[in-house]
């Protein structure tokens, strides 16, 4: 009984929940108006795209991989949709093409990683530059704007009191959660992260799973790009610039080990919630953008140090 108690206590999720509760307690002391539902709902509008990309990123990091190219895939997909729309194609077709482009970009990453055995960090560093470069090239760095109202409504309207993007996120989250916990695939993802070679010998289709995960990451990035374009009514080659660092920060704060094999989707969600609330509150209360960078950087380091300490406690007891 005591062992279970200790184990629960040392889970990153428990630690994060405590942090989040502390944060909310602090906020309610400093500035309770920030906690109104109305405020929270509106401020959430730009977290959903990041959250959608964080789901495949969690799985990729669980396999001891990383995907730095998500922001560039976003930009390439956004530009695909924008250029097609400008060329006179219908919006559903443009969206379909954008999703296809993103999926293809992700597939290429996966192919290089699984089949050519290039380290994911290296290959996605290269495709990060290439994909955004292609987006800049075909758009000549010009923005596309004036999308039809039917499309922009997807980014601006709300369903049942939540933005449309939130529902997209929930749907993806629930289905991925189900697959990870109810299907062998979930175990395989963790197995690859723990020991790639051993997984290959035990008959897991490592290559297929890796290609699948990176492809999924490309698809999710394209989806996020479309939601972004719909919300801001602009497609441009700088869409998603730097989002990869935000996503990776959230996943890692959420207790997913960068070496793979350890971490959960729930942890990622808590990580997202923590950095979102911290960022918004710092900006809300102090009106100084440069603080946010310092707070987020330290939060990342400190939370990982503490998680490490807790895990160590658990191992030694």
């Amino acid at each position: 009984m005591k062992a279970i108690f200790l184990r629960t206590l040392s889970l990153p999720e428990t630690f994060l929940s405590c942090l989040i509760i502390t944060l909310f307690a602090l906020i309610s002391q400093l500035d309770p108006s920030f906690l109104q539902w109305e405020v929270q709902r509106s401020l959430s509008s730009h977290i959903w795209e990041l959250a959608i990309i964080a789901i495949p990123m969690t799985l990729i990091i669980l396999t001891a991989g990383i995907d730095l190219s998500v922001g560039s895939i976003m930009s390439l997909s956004a530009i695909t949709a924008g250029m097609l729309f400008q060329a006179g194609s219908s919006m559903p077709l443009a969206c379909g093409a954008a999703l296809l482009t993103g999926t293809l970009g992700g597939f290429l990453n996966g192919f290089f990683i699984a089949r050519m055995r290039v380290h994911p960090l290296i290959i996605t560093l290269a495709t990060m530059a290439t994909y955004r470069g292609i987006a800049e090239g075909i758009s000549q760095a010009k923005p596309v704007s004036g999308f039809p109202a039917g499309f922009t409504r997807l980014g601006q309207d709300e369903w049942l009191n939540l933005p449309f993007a939130a529902w997209v996120f929930f749907i993806i989250f629930v289905s991925v959660f189900w697959v990870i916990h109810r299907r062998a695939l979930g175990l395989h993802v963790y197995a690859i992260g723990n020991n790639d070679t051993a997984s290959r010998f035990s008959g897991i289709h490592v290559d297929r799973i890796l290609i699948g995960l990176y492809t999924f990451s490309g698809f999710a990035s394209a989806l996020a790009a479309l939601l972004f374009v719909a919300r801001r009514n602009t497609a441009k080659a700088d869409v998603g610039m730097g989002i990869e660092l935000g996503v990776i920060t959230a996943v890692v704060i959420g207790g997913v080990s960068i070496f793979g094999g350890r971490g959960t989707l729930v942890g990622t969600c808590l990580g997202l919630l923590l950095i979102h609330e911290t960022r918004e509150f710092v900006s809300w209360h102090w009106n100084r953008d440069e603080f946010i960078l310092i707070v987020l950087g330290l939060l990342l380091i400190v939370s990982v140090v503490f998680q490490k300490l807790l895990r160590h406690k658990q191992n030694s007891s």
Partner: peptide, 23 residues
């Protein structure tokens, strides 16, 4: 000494030090 993965430490520093520069 704290055993934090280097990519995380330096990612955190990348963010924090940029803010520090502005300050």
């Amino acid at each position: 000494y704290a055993g934090v993965p280097s990519i995380i430490v330096t990612l955190g520093m990348l963010t924090a030090l940029r803010g520090l520069t502005e300050i």
